[in-house]
Amino acid sequence: MSRIQESVIIRTVVRIMVPFIELFALYVIIHGAGGPGGGFQGGVIFGAAIILYAMIYGIAEGKKKMSDALDKILASTGLTIYAGTGLLCILFGGMFLQYGSVPLIPDNPALVSKYLIDLVELGIGTTVAAVMISLFFDVSPPESEEGELPDYEGVDV
C-alpha cells in the first residue's frame, strides 16, 4: 500500500466524492438527448468513479464492489437493452431504432421517441461503464506488488 492510499484526507474525499460523480454521470446520460452529453460520456464518467474508488481503496476492495461476473453481466445487459429497443421498433413495423413506431403512448410518437432514446442511452452507458471498469482491472498491477506506481528517482509519488 503506497503513501497516497494511506492518506486519511484522500480516502475521506474519495468516499464523499464517488456518489456525486455517479450522480453527475446519470445526469449526463439522461440529459444527453437534449444537450451535450450522452450515453458514452456518462458511462465513462460512471466508470471513472468506480476506478477512482478502486485506485485509492485497492483493487481487491474495488472488485468487492464490482466483481468480474457483475462486469460481464452489466456489459451484456446494456447491449441487450440497446439491441432490444431497436428490435422492438422492428417488431411494431418500423425500422431499426425508429422509436416513433412503438405504440407505447397512443397518438404521441414524439413522446415515445423521447422515452426510448433515454432507454437506449441508459443501455449504452451501462455497457461503456462496465467495459471501462474491466479494462482498468485488467491492466492494473496485481495487489501483491508495492503500491500503484513504480519508484522513480527524483519523483515523489
Binding site: V44, I51, M55, F136, E145, L149, P150
Partner: peptide, 13 residues
C-alpha cells in the same frame, strides 16, 4: 480522464 488512468496503470507494470 480514462486514458491517463489506463496508461499509468499500464506503466506500473
Amino acid at each position: 480522464g480514462i486514458t491517463t488512468v489506463l496508461f499509468i496503470a499500464t506503466l506500473a507494470r
